[in-house]
């Protein structure tokens, strides 16, 4: 019986049918935002967002400052709680759980279970200043995954080598350049093998000459394939290279989304046209 699989193939391009298929557990979305809203007091930052990310999909999120991109990622990383709506990760509710058939607020244990599938790289690195580079990367394997130290360090070493930092194991974060710090932060998130990784403007705190090395590392990881990525970025060329899909965010809504070529060469909304021309102008 190969029909169902074929069916998925045919329909998965069409956004509308996507939901129905996911219910049948056929290649369900990695992440599914369902009518997600978020307000800070009177300010509504996200307005009923429906947004899916498929397993292994690389999605770039672009949009003007203050449009809510970071907030969207922070809700998924459980750093911020949605005001309404639900998020599913790998088919399971993130902020809610079912107890005796009733949907209630998720407890810490439930959050930890789901959170393990998600990783995040921050704009300002947020490395642990009191730990060496090696310990920064090995800390989660040791304290979260409970792997013996020696084994955790081995994993950390091989990931640090992958991001080109094999000579910095015993340095402290304060002794590194911004680009090196961000590569450590990427290694630190990567070592936990998340199924989806969030990058919130990973290069916008860097000196221009250091941006390339970090984007290079992210590109390498993207090419390896299996891990889904949500890339919030102002680097349009990078987005074009890496992303399978680009979503344009404005005032708490997804205004436009599609393949990078479509969006960048054929922007429909004037807001996106404005944004793109501003970047071209630089």
């Amino acid at each position: 019986m190969s029909t169902p699989l074929k069916l998925v193939k045919n329909l998965s391009d069409e956004e509308n049918n996507y939901q129905d298929i996911s219910k049948k557990k056929q290649k369900q979305p990695m992440v599914c935002y369902d009518k997600i809203s978020k307000s800070y007091g009177d300010l509504q930052v996200l307005k009923k967002i429906d947004f899916d990310i498929a397993p292994g999909e690389k999605v770039a999120l672009i949009g003007p400052s203050g449009s809510g991109k970071t907030t969207l990622a922070r809700l998924l990383m459980t750093l911020e709680e949605p005001t309404s709506g639900t998020i599913k990760v790998d088919g399971e509710l993130l902020w809610h759980q079912k107890i005796k058939g009733k949907k209630v607020k998720a407890n810490e244990k439930h959050l930890q279970k789901i959170r393990g599938k998600i990783g995040m790289v921050f704009q300002h690195f947020n490395l642990f200043p009191h730990m060496t580079i090696l310990d920064n990367v090995a800390a989660a394997p040791i304290h979260v995954a409970g792997i013996p130290r020696a084994e955790a360090e081995e994993q950390a070493i091989s990931i640090l080598e992958k991001v080109g930092l094999s000579d910095k194991f015993n340095a402290y974060p304060s002794q590194l350049s911004g680009g090196q710090k961000q590569r450590v932060a990427i290694a630190r998130a990567l070592v936990m093998r998340p199924q989806i990784m969030l990058f919130d403007e990973p290069t916008s705190a860097l000196d221009p000459e250091l941006v390339g090395e970090v984007l290079g590392v992210i590109k390498d990881i993207a090419q390896e394939g299996e891990m889904a990525m949500l890339l919030i970025t102002h680097e349009m060329d990078f987005a074009k290279d890496v992303a399978d899909r680009v979503a344009f965010f404005d005032e708490g809504r997804i205004v436009e989304e599609g393949k990078p070529e479509e969006l960048f060469y054929n922007p429909r909304s004037t807001r996106l046209q404005d944004l793109l021309s501003r970047f071209r102008g630089r």
């Binding site: 990383m77 750093l79 393990g116 998600i118 921050f122 490395l127 989660a140 998130a189 936990m192």
Partner: peptide, 15 residues
């Protein structure tokens, strides 16, 4: 940001 990095790496509150 330190707490947030800890959450992102799935540290329990105590850890």
């Amino acid at each position: 940001g330190q707490t947030e990095a800890g959450i992102a790496l799935n540290f329990s509150p105590w850890r």
